[in-house]
């Protein structure tokens, strides 16, 4: 299968010296749903904006369907659709008018235009609200309208930057169902950034974890989970002075890896049942009170914690986006 996106040694240093991308290498298969997941500031949006030809990388190369995004930007733009994280529709005209304007910008022939717009509205369940001004729409409806206008032009690849940020679970689910069915019908490749682990887990064929401007791990969800091997023990502790305990646990037999985050430790072990007692003993010796213990098969969260070294904490960002969306609606 040939690649929809190929990235080689991509580096982006912003004016002022902030290094957003630090040598990215990436391959995305055609027709797959690809998820780029990482903490805030990891470089997700920067990578997507380079792939969508909005600005140039400092060094390295990126290709979309074999076309260099810097040299052949014009041709790349004909193949792609892009939905930025922020609101990207005009809120002071109706949903129908938004799609009509986009249909014209993409030069859909006038004979097909009306049909394409109606179809896009229908697909995203917006027919009923076609003539309402967008500033009366809910956040989920605005997102659906944005995705409708992105899909209306039948792109070969769809770039979505945090497609469901700030939406409630049912709106998120609705959007994903539409995207999946569209992918089935038209074979579009979907490249999305997210920090919702569950979306990556449920909907993506391939995942890459990005941290501090570099891809730290990639593969299918299953591959990533299996890469940890064994089982995972989570310990919730009463303290965050863990040094002694960490050292002890690392030295135990059957322990593969120990990752900690605040007052929580994740221990990857060969066999949880045999190792747990020794871990508890170590905690007792170090006089660390254990609040809660759980044993699981590795999940994508654990993979993320291991490779990105942090949990996905995104509360602040979501609030910010919600506020922006609210402000826009108030206009």
């Amino acid at each position: 299968m040939s690649s929809a996106v190929t990235v080689r040694n991509l580096v982006k240093v912003y004016e002022g010296g902030v290094k957003a991308l630090n040598g990215i290498n990436l391959d995305v298969d055609q027709g797959s749903i690809f998820s780029l997941i990482g903490p805030n500031g990891a470089g997700k949006t920067t990578l997507m904006r380079i792939l969508t030809t909005q600005f140039k990388p400092t060094s390295g190369e990126a290709y979309v369907f074999g076309l260099n995004v810097v040299k052949h930007g014009d041709q790349v733009r004909k193949l792609i659709s892009y939905v930025p994280q922020e609101i990207s529709v005009w809120t002071d005209v109706s949903g129908y008018e938004n799609l009509l304007i986009y249909a014209k910008i993409y030069r859909l022939p006038s004979s097909e235009r009306r049909k394409a717009v109606e179809e896009a509205l229908e697909n995203m369940g917006l027919t009923e609200f076609r003539n309402s001004l967008v500033n009366t729409y809910s956040g989920g409806m605005i997102r659906r309208l944005e995705i409708a206008s992105a899909l209306m032009t039948k792109p070969k690849i769809l770039f979505l930057d945090e497609p469901t940020i700030g939406l409630d679970p049912s709106a998120r689910k609705a959007i994903w169902e539409k995207l999946i069915s569209f992918k089935k019908d038209y074979g579009v490749t979907v490249f999305f950034n997210t920090h919702y682990m569950d979306e990556t887990e449920h909907y993506s064929d391939e995942v890459a974890i990005i941290n501090r401007g570099a891809i730290v791990k990639s593969g299918t969800v299953k591959e990533l989970e299996q890469s940890l091997g064994g089982e995972v023990i989570h310990l919730n502790l009463n303290t965050s002075s863990l040094k002694g305990l960490l050292k002890r646990v690392r030295e135990l037999n059957g322990v593969r890896e120990v990752v900690f985050n605040d007052s929580e430790i994740m221990v990857i072990v060969n066999d949880a049942e045999t190792t747990l007692p020794s871990i508890m003993e170590a905690a007792r010796v170090e006089e660390v009170a254990v609040k809660r213990v759980s044993m699981t098969k590795p999940s994508l969260d654990d993979v993320f914690l291991k490779y990105a070294g942090a949990k996905l904490e995104s509360g602040g960002r979501v609030v910010e986006v919600k506020q922006l969306r609210g402000a826009i609606k108030r206009g």
Binding site: R49, T52, T53, Q54, D74, R77, K78, I80, Y82, V83, P84, Q85, E86, I87, S88, V89, W90, Y102, I105, Y106, L324, I328
Partner: peptide, 14 residues
């Protein structure tokens, strides 16, 4: 610019 409209316009083949 604060919203994403200009980004999207910038990415259209015009």
């Amino acid at each position: 610019r604060e919203t994403g409209i200009l980004k999207r316009l910038y990415v259209t083949p015009t």
